[in-house]
Design a protein around this nucleic acid. Sequence first.
DNA 1: GATAGAAATCGTAACGTTTCAATAAACTGC
DNA 2: GCAGTTTATTGAAACGTTACGATTTCTATC
Lengths: 342, 342
Amino acid sequence: MAIKPRAKYTMRDVARLAGVSTSTVSAVINGSVPVSSARAEKVRAAMAALDYHPDEVARSLKTGRTNVVGVIVPDITNAFYPEVVRGVEEAAGKAGYSVLLCDSSEDARTEEKHLNTLFARRVDGVLLACCAHSTAYDTMVRRRFPMVFVDRVPAAAPEGTIATDNVGSGAMAARHLIALGHERIAMLAGNLELSPHRDRLEGFRKAMQEANLPIRDEYLISGGVQVQDGDDAGVQLLALHPRPTAIMVSNNQLFLGLLQALERRQVRIPEEVSVVGFDDHVWNAHFHPSLTAVAQATFEMGRRGFELLQHIMGRKPGEELPEKHVRLEAELRVRNSTGRAG
Amino acid sequence: MAIKPRAKYTMRDVARLAGVSTSTVSAVINGSVPVSSARAEKVRAAMAALDYHPDEVARSLKTGRTNVVGVIVPDITNAFYPEVVRGVEEAAGKAGYSVLLCDSSEDARTEEKHLNTLFARRVDGVLLACCAHSTAYDTMVRRRFPMVFVDRVPAAAPEGTIATDNVGSGAMAARHLIALGHERIAMLAGNLELSPHRDRLEGFRKAMQEANLPIRDEYLISGGVQVQDGDDAGVQLLALHPRPTAIMVSNNQLFLGLLQALERRQVRIPEEVSVVGFDDHVWNAHFHPSLTAVAQATFEMGRRGFELLQHIMGRKPGEELPEKHVRLEAELRVRNSTGRAG
DNA sequence: GATAGAAATCGTAACGTTTCAATAAACTGC
DNA sequence: GCAGTTTATTGAAACGTTACGATTTCTATC
């Protein structure tokens, strides 16, 4: 294997130019040990003259830390995740960390592959929005790897999780519909192997029960999380008698699919059916009608997720975490896609 | 500085367990040198038994390559970039590279900081969608750093650029409006320091000239690229006499702002004014009316951008590139926001 | 001016790999 | 059976840092 030409200058060169030892250069860089200001100045001048930047690879090998965290998302083109990633990236940057981004395409094998790569690259920790049938939990626990589950959390995770209060916000969305007088409420519940969808359904159930409203089996559609799944489910719901007067949808892609189906059938919103979705973004406000949706604290999820990971990475053996599970509040943005029943 | 406990096992442990030297283990891993199948099998068994994964950090230090590329985007929450990044990530993954993601927030100083970090981390190359007043070009050329400019390309870049044919697609959008009989056409041209916006304006000018149509100064609004800028510009345009009958918009955020302003003033689209934008995404088709827009080959931009970078990284000194600049065709998706001139 | 103690500096041995020159082992052909 | 070749295997020297113990240089005190 051909060896790549490396950075022009090394610490040796700086040391020679400044007339000191490499130890002194290292001390100036890291501030680990006091250096007389005269020499420190000389060293700094030499570094600038050579445009010298310490080799982080060598440094990592020596210190055992890379100052890199991995982030694995199931689909970066799903508008939810870029905001989370942005939150991570910003918090990480402030703390001197860089972010290695991986996309699992909702595939457990790809996820596992990424996890192995990140492990081999010796990242200091991983933030993971896992996919269905994820084996991540076992793999990394076995390796004692600092990890935080974001958005989608395995039931077994004993610590290091951050997510929206999905039970609560599912109930919130349902209660909103109930308060508008709806009784025949349907839900596109998404993939019930994923915690957010499972929890939102639980919240929905809770709210319905509180209000003494029945949930018909045929009003509950679960399975996929893609646009086409939402479209299919919409078609299915429209064929029912009686039709639901309101539909709650468990994520933005299903939501879009549902809207597509309703539009094709020329079903008027909210006159004929009210719809409320999860995941808000700019376009929701400009849809016709504008869309009522649950807005998650995406950016904050990323930011605090990184902070949680930082605690885990910095923890001494046996030490307890200040908090093991972070639960974020969501906000219902009421717009014009939900209206009074009847 | 406390040293982090490292991976349980090293090549030494594998070698000892397999009863061979570390050189042999290395040979098995890299296939660099023939190893008798009996010993190779022993080594593989030992690796599996210890769940051993070679330390990529050590390997990088030795080989001088990290198999990591950096990607810097101005705003990952702008729906355009996740698709580009996905293209890069996928192509990179297939080639054994990982992706370090940085967000510059459209700020030249942040961009420069990221560039330095990536450089220090010894990534093998960088894909950059630069921001206004970027100093990246000089910095990295000085360092002879493999780099590809994506989407936004500095005029001076002698090679390693990939972008949409913005002049062509700008002209395409304008011609579409002209063909519909519009003569008073306005343009929200965005930030003219950025090549895509500059080029789209040039295309617009070209098409107008071909058709012998004048461009009024007050119909040309440039400056920002954010939603609010689009809104402001919309307000400004609506105050003019005569009003333009069609408006072309240089990116998706400006587009959204413009739509916001038109909606507030209850301007009917396309009856009173036709609008065409840049950057298509799923929601455009479901807007009311559905939005005519130029769709760029985002995913492909990422994928081919990475491939171009690969060529640059793998190039021997003095060798020529198979192609220095990649220009991608865009597609005009005609929907209902553009109609015949009144 | 000598001396103790503190402060600054340095040499060197790692960190976990790869690679190259050197050795050992196994084949050739005669 | 032996020189000559090929083929496997290994030991040891890097790669560019950090950090430890050892050493030198200061400063203050008597």
